[in-house]
């Protein structure tokens, strides 16, 4: 279940005088089972890119392959693709519409043409995976709190059992506790089921702890694509495009400048704590 992008460009309003290139010549390979952070400033083309991955947008130039098949070919089954590549949009709670939470989550699998029983099993599983409490299953989704609504909406996509899960800013507008909970649940899910997860964010802080690979975008181009450690080493480059490495990176850099013997290979607060403690023990 790998995704391959070859020279993908997308130009909005190509035939008008207001043409804007949102993506220029993107080459990208997404193998199965990776947890990827897609980082970029507002307007860097992240949202446009992910909408290409399940065929909601078609590239102006270039090709996208899913398991070796061109997804924009006429014979390609888009519905099948959309069940395999699940996309959770920004503020997904705005898409809720059913009378109860459970029915709303059933919407996705029902569209896949599954049997009623299978639909309900999947919905139940998805709600559990997203961390929704059982007593909320039969409430109206509009009575829930913001964070709960978001979980329900994420469950709505999980119920389709995608092999690639793309989340566009899943933590926007949540408090730090809610953010950690949702991201933790996604990480757990990824570990258990081995699916590919692409986490879109504008904040390094958010993703540093969870991802194996970071892709940094700026003005429609990929400028960095590596492991978090390697990407954060380029923090000067990140600053140039209006992003920043996690604060931990800066603290460790300053400490090193002051003459402390620390390793630079630190990305999370926990690792930094261990590193500093061991430094003082010496």
């Amino acid at each position: 279940m790998s995704l391959l992008l070859e020279g993908v460009s997308h130009i909005y309003g190509e035939d008008t005088n207001l043409a804007v290139a949102a993506l220029c010549n993107i080459n990208l390979e997404i193998p199965e089972g990776q947890f990827i952070g897609l980082i970029g400033h507002t307007g860097s083309g992240k949202s446009t890119l992910i909408q290409h991955l399940n065929g909601l947008l078609q590239p102006s130039h270039g090709k996208i392959y899913f398991n070796g098949k061109d997804i924009n070919e006429k014979s390609f089954d888009r519905k099948e693709l959309r069940s395999k590549v699940g996309l959770v949009f920004q503020y997904p709670e705005h898409q809720l519409f059913e009378v109860t939470v459970f029915q709303d989550v059933c919407f996705g699998p029902k569209n896949l043409g599954l049997e009623q029983k299978e639909v309900e099993i999947r919905a139940y599983k998805a709600l559990k995976q997203a961390g929704v409490k059982e007593e909320q299953f039969y409430q109206s989704p509009f009575e829930l709190s913001g964070g709960q609504k978001r979980r329900v909406a994420i469950a709505g996509v999980l119920a389709m059992e995608p092999r690639v899960l793309i989340l566009d800013e899943p933590t926007a507008g949540l408090d730090p506790a809610g953010r950690d909970e949702i991201l933790g649940q996604i990480k757990k899910l990824q570990k258990e089921t081995g699916i590919t997860v692409i986490l879109v964010s504008h904040s390094m802080e958010d993703v540093a702890e969870y991802v194996d690979r970071i892709i940094v975008m700026n003005k429609g181009k990929i400028i960095l694509d590596n492991t978090p450690k390697e990407v954060f080493k380029e923090y000067k480059c990140l600053e140039e495009v209006g992003l920043a490495a996690p604060q931990v990176t800066y603290i460790m850099e300053s400490l090193k400048e002051e003459g402390f013997m620390l390793s630079a290979e630190v990305t999370t607060i926990e690792e930094a704590k261990q590193e500093i403690l061991s430094c003082f023990k010496k």
């Binding site: 996309l87 997904p92 996705g108 996509v157 389709m160």
Partner: peptide, 16 residues
């Protein structure tokens, strides 16, 4: 714009 966004979100959930 909102219509476009919701439509895309539902298509992503298999709506036709």
């Amino acid at each position: 714009e909102e219509t476009d966004k919701i439509m895309k979100a539902q298509i992503a959930r298999g709506a036709d």
